[in-house]
Nucleic acid binder design. Sequence first.
DNA 1: ATAATTTGACCGTCC
DNA 2: AGGACGGTCAAATTA
Length: 404
Amino acid sequence: MEINEAGKIVIARPVASRPAFSGFRSFTELLCTTSSPNALSKTAVAAIKPRTVRFKPAGNQNLVEMDSFEAELSGSEDSSASDDILKSKITANVIYKPIAKLVSKTTISVLANLGRDNLACLQKIPEVEAQSNNQGNSPLDLTSESCQNFTSQSEAKGTATQENSRAGKNSVLLTTDGDRPSYDGYNWRKYGQKQVKGSQYPRSYYKCTKPNCPVKKNVERTLDGQIAEIVYKGVHNHPKSRPSKHTSTDGQGHGFASDATSNEMKNPVPSNQPNGRNECYEGRFDNRNDNESSGHSTYPGRVLLSKDLMIDGALNISVSTPDDSFGISEEFEVGSKDLEAEGDEPKSKRRKKEHQSIKEGTRDPQTANPNSADCEVLGDGYRWRKYGQKVVKGNPYPRLALIG
DNA sequence: ATAATTTGACCGTCC
DNA sequence: AGGACGGTCAAATTA
Ligand SMILES: [Zn+2]
C-alpha cells in the first residue's frame, strides 16, 4: 500500500540523465515563454462543510465507463520497474506539473501586489475550489497575460530556484490551488473525493461534463492545495472547448471548473485532434513534492501524457515514447523517471476492463497524430520535431529529443 | 431556481 | 466468506 511515496516523491529532477541537449532548456524556455504554465492561484477558502447524509438506493452504477484506460502508475520514482511500467505505462500518462495553475486576473493582481507576501497568498489561495470567478476566463487570460507573470515566476523559480514558491510555504504561487482550473480545455465536474490509502492526500474524482464523454480524472492535492497527482482516464469524444475568452465555451457554458490541473490550454491546439477525439488517454500528473520541497523547487516531474496534455512547468522535459503501446502516450519526463509502480496499488480493479477498452480506443498513435512523421504534436499544443532518440539507462523506452 | 460541490454510503474487485 | 480499498452514486448543501 503505501509505497508510493517513495516513488512519487520524487520528482525528479531533470536533469540527470539526459543526454544533454540543449533542448532541455529550450524546452523549458519554450514552455515558459510560449506556453506558459498555468499557474494559478486564487482565493481561497477553506471551508468546512457540513456533512450530508444520504440514504441510498442502490444500484446503478454500472455505468462506468469503460472507455477509459487506465493508468496507473504511479509514481515517480525511478525505479526501474520496467515490467510494471510497461504494463502500466502503457496506458498511463503522467504528468508532473510543477507549478501550474491558472490564475485569475484578480489573483494575479493580487499576487502582484502581494508579491512579497507569500503568506498572504497562501492563505488565500488554498482552497478554493473553485467557484469563483475565474472560471471562464482564466484560462485564457492566464495564458496570455497571466501566464507571463507566472511564467516568470515559475520559471524563475524553477530554474533559478524557486524559492518563493515554496518558500512561502506552502505554496503559493506555484501551487495549485484548489481546484481551480487550469483549464485544460475540458470542463470537469467533481463527483467524489476520498482518502486513498496509498496517498497522503485526498483524491478527488472528476468527470468530463460533456454528456457522452467518458473521461474522468483523479486529482490528488496536497494540503496546500498543490496538486500531487493527476490521472486521466479515457478519451474525450469531443473537441476541447476552447476558451474563448469570455465565454464559457463549449459546452456548458457556465464556467466550468476545471479542476485544477492540468494543462494549459491555452493554445489553440493546433491540431490536435483531427477528429476531435482523443484527447487524453490517460495521464498522470504528479507533483508531490512536499516532501522535499526543500530541495528544489520546482516540481519537477514527469509527465507522460498523451495526447493532449500539457506540460508545464518549468522543467525539463524529455519526451519519450514507449513503443509499445499504443502510442498513446508520449511521455514527458521531467525529471527522472518514475514510473512506478507498481503493484502495490490496488488500483487495478477496474483496470482490466479499461485496458481493453483502452486499447481499442487508443491505438493508433499515428493516426492520431497526423504529423507523426517528424513532427509530432504532443499534448502541449505545439508541434515538435524529433531530432534524436536514445535509449536511456533507467528508462526502458527510448527517449526522444524534440525541438519545438 | 439552477448548477456544482460535498461527502457518506454503496458497489465491485482483490486478497 | 469476509475485510480492505478504490471508485462511484446521489442526497444534501452551497454558490
Ligand atoms: Zn470530454
